[in-house]
Amino acid sequence: MTPANAIIVTDLLKAAGFNFAVTLPATQVHTLQTSLIESPDFTHVAVSNEGEGAAICAGAWLGGKTPFMVIETSGILVATYALLRCHATFGIPTMILSTYRGELGEQEWYAVHTGAAIPGLLAALRIPSRIVSEVDELKTSLIEARRSMDTSLHPVSIIMSGRITKG
């Protein structure tokens, strides 16, 4: 993600009401993660495992925060246990803002199968998900994601296409 877009997305997250960020570094969104770390508007936790990160987000929500994770595509796989055993079981929302490695046009062989599995995995987890391809679409999507968190008490997912995250 370009540094300029990282700042735009940071501002959109704040405007949508999010205030608690969990990150695990990922190639295409490290500029966004850096922007979140530097922003005074978010409580930030750097984790070493996305499942741990999902559980931290759950605790933050129970304590009154509006949490989200910025993670790479395969991080959703790692977070699956926490998302089911904690969020789904207790009814706790979190927003997952991820990259979309393995989408059409992927240039790295190792990312192809993870990306192909993600939409089906999210459906199996009954996590509403939207693939967003332009930064301009993110404003509405982030507001709607936050609204769905409030009303469903279940995780939501926004997957950012390479059109947003590359560069």
Partner: peptide
């Protein structure tokens, strides 16, 4: 709470409260 999730959840709670 599920195995492996207790202390991470508490860390999020502690930061929020």
């Amino acid at each position: 709470m599920g195995m492996g999730l207790v202390t991470p959840l508490c860390l999020g709670l502690a930061l929020a409260q």
